[in-house]
Design a protein around this nucleic acid. Structure first.
Lengths: 334, 334
DNA sequence: CTGTTTCATTACATCGTTGCAGATGTTGGC
DNA sequence: GCCAACATCTGCAACGATGTAATGAAACAG
């Protein structure tokens, strides 16, 4: 049905292989021949069959992106940028949602998804380092986030601890003394939540304030859990004068609940988040948060992954990249 | 390197073709043979090579999704659901961002992207019906949205006009008389924006209120344009007592600007949106909006597309599906 | 003028699967 | 006990490209 290389070859009066050579920028082709081939391609409207090319070459020019849920704004914004950056280097991105379940992460890592891609950007949330290490296969994997920090893996991450310290210090500098944290994952001391919590504690320490575990509320990283966590805190009667949401969705949910309950933000309780999703700027009051350098993360992670795929990056140990951050002071915690 | 069908065949003591038959659920295979093949597959850890299968069968089991920008919350939430629904039927979704540019839409429709997918969910925003019709190729295309409504195409959409009438009627019922609209696209009278605007005008007509073009502000469908549009209205001194954002992002941006300027929502100006993204529930005040039946849209559009691909749907004319809507009355316009 | 190098092109095998047509074995009717 | 009918399995070609190696032609040195 479709036009094949053979048709082009016939039309140009050359062999099939010469057409292939032209398309692959083989060095030694007479300009006249090249021209004839290009003319034939244009005339017939030939387009290379990517599937056949993949079968023969073993490359798909697709990158896998495994994340928990594309509807989470941080991931949506990240995915959008990753796709844009990847396309500049001639790659597409195929997204797989894991729901943060170990089982799904495993199938994304090992299953057919892997075949379809030349390399993987993987945000592990459930699987541990050894499990990933033993199943990562032979194609490049670049980890995103900080659930797994291990010299065996390439990793692109952000300054979670420093940034969390900066946000907390900002709240402290504004006179807040009882800063609740929402979104902690009790089970993990490392990982994103652990690091941000560490940053928070470090700021408290630096200010000579005792850490109060009662101010730490667990929760999934969604708006509704942020709201629920704050509802719990308010109902329990524990006093607090600020809320640090471990990500923006949590913080925005928390802020919503505060306002619904008649608590003034920032007068009674200041609120800060983490991620600087677009929504944060337009919340009311606008949300003080940390911009974790998403553009840099997108650039570097795609760059690193493609360099690995194309053999341009050959470090034996994992390359670790940490993007810079910026504190965004807005109305919710001026 | 990897285990192939040939290896399995050898291990099971059958021909390569029999292995293929087993995997493709060919009817006439002795249970014992089937068992031996399955055992061999398990033992060797065989996984079918999807690329080879695609080359031979001409199917990729991937669906293309073309939308303007994955970071827009409505599209992010929709994409997430589409991927979930598709995976239940054994398909993956490959996303392509068009930026609402005709050129990008055209390459998504005609270019290599098309080869990689068995069918396309296409949200046209720039291209017109004839252009799409003449370039849609032979594989199924299901349109999303209402930029193109044409009997030649399968289409899954929502009750834009009715829903917009309902929202507007709700604002009118609450006593609002000067309802500004933000996000109009001057160039289009049909299309999503045109339909929602029609709905708005219909509600005005029903209430016997004259339409005032000065209340209609154009803008891209993003938070920042919503804010800018409201800033323009306020600066121009045109009085208004409600804002209808043609989508939630616009409405949320508009609401932000109102609050920043000290305009009380809903007391001074009520705000309503369209889409019911998760963010709307957690905005402060929470946003009155229309839930356009996103789950239904996801189910039906994937279902229709896959039915076309698999030949289960054979209607000659385009199938048009319109999801139901629900008005979500919240604090911003009680 | 011959032998070697360099350029330009080609033939053939191959990637791992599925479609098609045919081969073999098995059953049942008479 | 034979043949038709059916069940079960197999071989070969093909999908459309690329890698390898070989061939032919031109250029150059001695």
């Amino acid at each position: 049905m479709a036009v094949t290389m053979n048709d082009v070859a016939r039309a140009a009066g050359v062999s099939l292989k010469t057409v292939s050579n032209v398309l692959n920028d083989y060095e030694f082709i007479r300009p006249a021949t090249k021209q004839r081939v290009h003319d034939a391609i244009a005339e017939l409207g030939y387009e290379a069959n990517l599937t056949a090319r993949s079968l023969r070459s073993g490359k798909t020019r697709m990158l896998g992106l495994v994340l928990s849920d594309l509807s989470a704004p941080y991931y949506a914004e990240l995915a959008s940028r990753l796709m844009t950056v990847a396309s500049r280097r001639g790659y597409r991105v195929l997204v797989e949602q894991s729901g943060a379940a170990a089982e799904s992460e495993l199938t994304a890592l090992q299953g057919p998804f892997r075949q379809l891609t030349d390399g993987l950007l993987f945000t592990p949330l459930a699987m541990e380092a050894d499990a990933v290490a033993s199943r990562r296969g032979s194609k490049p994997v670049v980890l995103l986030g900080e659930h797994i920090v291990d010299p065996r893996f390439d990793l692109v991450t952000m300054k979670n601890e420093e940034a969390a310290t900066a946000v907390t210090a900002h709240l402290l500098a504004a006179g807040r003394r009882r800063i609740a944290v929402v979104g902690a994952r009790s089970e993990e001391s490392a990982g994103t939540s652990g690091l941000r919590l560490n940053g928070y504690r470090k700021a408290l320490d630096d200010a000579g304030i005792t850490f109060d575990p009662a101010l730490v509320a667990p929760g999934e990283w969604r708006r509704d859990s942020g709201a629920a966590a704050v509802a719990g805190l308010l109902d329990s009667g524990i006093p607090f004068d600020a809320v640090f949401g471990l990500n923006d969705a949590l913080a925005l949910g928390a802020m919503h609940e505060l306002l619904v309950r008649g608590v003034k933000v920032p007068q009674d309780v200041a609120v800060a988040g983490f991620d600087d999703i677009d929504e944060a700027r337009f919340a009311s009051p606008s949300l003080t948060t940390v911009s974790p350098g998403m553009d840099e993360i997108a650039e570097r992670s795609i760059g690193l992954l493609i360099d690995r795929i194309e053999g341009l990056e050959t470090a034996d140990d994992g390359v670790h990249v940490e993007a810079g951050f910026m504190l965004k002071i807005r109305e919710s915690a001026p």
